[in-house]
């Protein structure tokens, strides 16, 4: 199977995410986080990125600690089961390893800002955030006539991880979608990472499940296990222990650097990373197939 869009993670990151790019990731919230893509950004020493997302369970913290990030436009950055993001704290409180700018949102507001960009609207009005000081620390929010105007947020690239895609990037994702659709539609282009790379017939048999127009997809990366330690419905459970270990080790800058060397800089790619993970403990074994749907037309 060949397709002009199919490439390695290293190629996709190198071609599509330059220094200074704005990147949406973690759009499903806790599941399906494209950690493999984030780690490749770190290995390629990308700089001055703007990270866009609702919450980030670990990944944004790792990129901040590695010095890749200039700006955060998100509702929450930390470690969902463990609490605070220690690299995020060091960057915002002490400017280590560098100063970052934070633009605050709520989850709903991130979604609205992405929809505004997707629809090419000047803003979307909402009642959420009325009375919140988030209005004071985000210049892209404004109260006019009793409603908050949320201005559009357009990522240069959205990076998603899905269960399956064909070589053209017709991506099937199931489970909760978070802000994935609006992030993809808003973005200038999309990198689809997939657990399984399948023939077009498979995804085209169920076009309702295709996330985005394939014209937005610029790269398709076949990266099984690319979401570890986050879960992926039907494939992987969440590795709670890995989140705990990251929280413990990243508490100090030195501990973070050791973690980074061991899990990111010291491994060439995702395949080598996964060899260090107890995959059999995390693999979902029980199958729960949905009923097929009938698209019959005559």
């Amino acid at each position: 199977m060949t397709g002009g869009k199919v490439m390695t993670m290293a190629e996709a990151i190198s071609r599509l995410v330059p220094d200074g790019a704005s990147v949406a990731m973690g759009t499903c919230l806790e599941p399906a986080i494209p950690f493999a893509a984030g780690h490749e950004l770190i290995r390629q020493r990308r700089r001055d990125l703007t990270l866009i997302g609702p919450i980030s369970d670990g990944l944004f913290d790792q990129l901040i600690g590695a010095g890749c990030v200039a700006r955060i436009r998100a509702a929450w950055v930390g470690n969902v089961s463990e609490g605070l993001g220690h690299c995020y704290r060091r960057a915002t409180e002490r400017g280590e390893p560098r100063q970052i700018e934070v633009c605050d949102y709520s989850n709903f507001a991130v979604s609205l800002a992405l929809w505004a960009a997707a629809w090419n609207a000047p803003y979307l009005p909402t009642r959420t955030l009325l009375g919140s000081d988030i209005l004071k620390t985000n210049p892209d929010l404004e109260v006019v006539d009793g409603a908050v105007r949320v201005r559009p947020l357009r990522p240069d690239v959205a990076i998603v991880h899905v269960q399956r895609s064909d070589p053209e990037g017709r991506a099937h994702l199931w489970g909760p979608l978070g802000v994935t659709e609006e992030a993809g539609l808003a973005a200038r282009r999309i990198i689809v990472c997939c657990e399984e790379l399948v023939e077009p017939e498979v995804v085209l048999s169920d076009p309702n499940r295709i996330l985005f127009p394939d014209t937005k997809v610029a790269a398709v990366v076949h990266e099984p296990g690319g979401t570890h330690p986050s879960p992926l419905q039907g494939h992987w459970r969440r590795d709670h222990g890995a989140y705990r270990e990251y929280a413990r080790r990243s508490r100090t800058a030195e501990g973070y650097r050791e973690w980074l060397e061991e899990w990111v800089l010291g491994v060439p790619d995702r395949r080598a990373y996964l060899e260090r993970v107890d995959r059999e403990r995390l693999r979902v074994r029980e199958r729960r197939l949905a009923a097929p749907v009938d698209y019959g037309d005559e």
């Binding site: 609702p54 919450i55 998100a74 509702a75 929450w76 950055v77 930390g78 609490g83 605070l84 993001g85 995020y88 704290r89 915002t92 409180e93 934070v102 605050d104 949102y105 709520s106 989850n107 709903f108 507001a109 009642r127 959420t128 955030l129 009325l130 009375g131 919140s132 988030i134 004071k136 620390t137």
Partner: peptide
């Protein structure tokens, strides 16, 4: 001070939306 906080907490998540709506 938000521009140089003593402690940076993770943020709203959906908290502000829940509190308001």
């Amino acid at each position: 001070d938000p521009s140089r906080p003593r402690t940076k907490l993770p943020g709203s998540g959906g908290g502000a939306d829940i509190a308001i709506l």
